[in-house]
Write a protein that binds this DNA or RNA. Structure first.
Lengths: 243, 243
DNA sequence: ACACCTAGCTGTACAACGTACGTTTAGCTT
DNA sequence: AAGCTAAACGTACGTTGTACAGCTAGGTGT
């Protein structure tokens, strides 16, 4: 439309001082798949999941929205790539200690990677397509379980359980009804429930409210690992569900 | 604008045969919040989450899209109400057996309700606002843990862990890379990973693939409950994470 | 040196979504 | 019969993901 805006760097001081008019020094590094994905991850970490729109991402990269489609097929692929970038942070190289120790270290590293990008982690578990780094984590976890002596069937069950717990953990933050600030605006939303009807919740409400207690993830992980431990040591001692 | 279209029933045979012009027999039962929410839940159960649009729901109810907004504030409230309707199916009245037995029954019933509406359950955990039925489940779970002898702090941690595992379970179905059918269309999506690099996954792939094995949920639940059991019996015996 | 090719970026455009707004209508009250 | 009120309506707007076609710069062959 206007040639004013179509000439890059026209209003940029570093160009019209005129070092070499034929070369555009102000041009950002050329777009690449990695740059797009990194920028997207940064955007989500900083401004949240809903802030990730192709337009916003393009603006961030100083590029038109459709330029992104030269590097990612669609938004879905972009998110998959973001997830794999996040999972690249997981340390899968621990080889010290027995299987329980190693397994704990692996899952904790996994958890920390998700926690570092908790906004992205909220959609993670819904994803089906799995990337190379996700595969690597999976491989190490299953390998440890097999080495521990679990059967292939049980190893895959155990893997799923650990996986589900870890991935699910990020999704659940502060739940619990806010009876204080937001109550007035949800008038008629739900019929209010008096504290007498929920005595136990009321009794422990201080622990339920707010964000996750630090160490809460480890608490659940220890429960699961303790369960695995006794199952490995004396399978018949573990009570199981009927039917 | 045009009186032609603004006069209702003009082209409807059942009205202009004229049994009683003042009464409109063809009118469906009047819209209500409950009817809207039930229809929405049915729609999601049947056609999936993405099929839930206000337009589609209105069509299902033979009503214009905006009519829905007389009964729900917005789509967000609608989903919250759907979730609570789903949670109404959980049986919270079991009082037989010791705390472990009751807890297992409660969580399993919870799981079954989510499984019966697994499409809706996929967004469930992300929700923050909690309804009366969700509160009731929470109350019973925490009460059982307190009765078992856990401290308020530990009871709330245990509740969260059970909650996270159960809610998270629905979100993770068949993961694992499909090397077979979909591989050709994801060319260049991810660099392909040869089976030699993921020997353990390859060894147990038959168990990892496909939908959840029946009983897999119970497997993880038993692990968690076993962990709780030994923690209650002999807390010092449980290995915990360092730092 | 000049014409050509190609990869990548741009502008324009469209369909589907949630929902705000102002109007119309039906059924009850008086 | 007249009038009021709550519910449903039609229209429209802004935002989203993305298809399409044209432009443009950098490298290549002659």
């Amino acid at each position: 439309m206007t040639d004013q805006s179509s000439v890059p760097g026209r209003s940029d001081p570093t160009t019209w001082v005129g070092i070499d008019a034929s070369k555009d020094y102000t041009r950002p590094p050329p777009l690449s798949r990695a740059r797009v994905v990194r920028a997207a991850l940064g955007l989500v970490d900083e401004k949240g999941l809903t802030a990730l729109t192709m337009r916003a991402l393009a603006t961030e990269l100083e590029v038109s929205p459709m330029a992104l489609y030269n590097h990612v097929r669609d938004k879905d692929e972009l998110v998959d790539l973001m997830v794999d970038l996040m999972l690249a942070e997981v340390d899968t190289s621990v080889t010290e200690g027995d299987w329980l120790t190693q397994l704990r270290a692996l899952v904790r590293s996994y958890h920390q990677a998700l926690a570092a990008h908790h906004e992205l982690a909220r959609v993670y578990s819904v994803r089906v397509r799995i990337g190379p780094h996700g595969l690597l984590i999976m491989e190490r976890t299953v390998a440890l379980l097999l080495e521990a002596g679990f059967s292939p069937a049980e190893a895959s069950d155990a893997f799923f359980v650990l996986f589900i717990y870890t991935a699910g953990f990020q999704q659940i933050g502060d739940i619990v009804p806010r009876r204080d600030s937001a109550t007035r605006e949800e008038t008629g939303y739900y019929p209010p429930l008096p504290p007498q009807q929920i005595p136990s919740i009321t009794a422990v409400s201080q622990h339920l409210n707010g964000p996750h207690r630090p160490g809460r993830f480890d608490y659940g992980l220890d429960l699961l690992l303790a369960g695995l431990q006794v199952k490995m040591a004396q399978p018949e001692k573990v009570a199981t569900a009927p039917q």
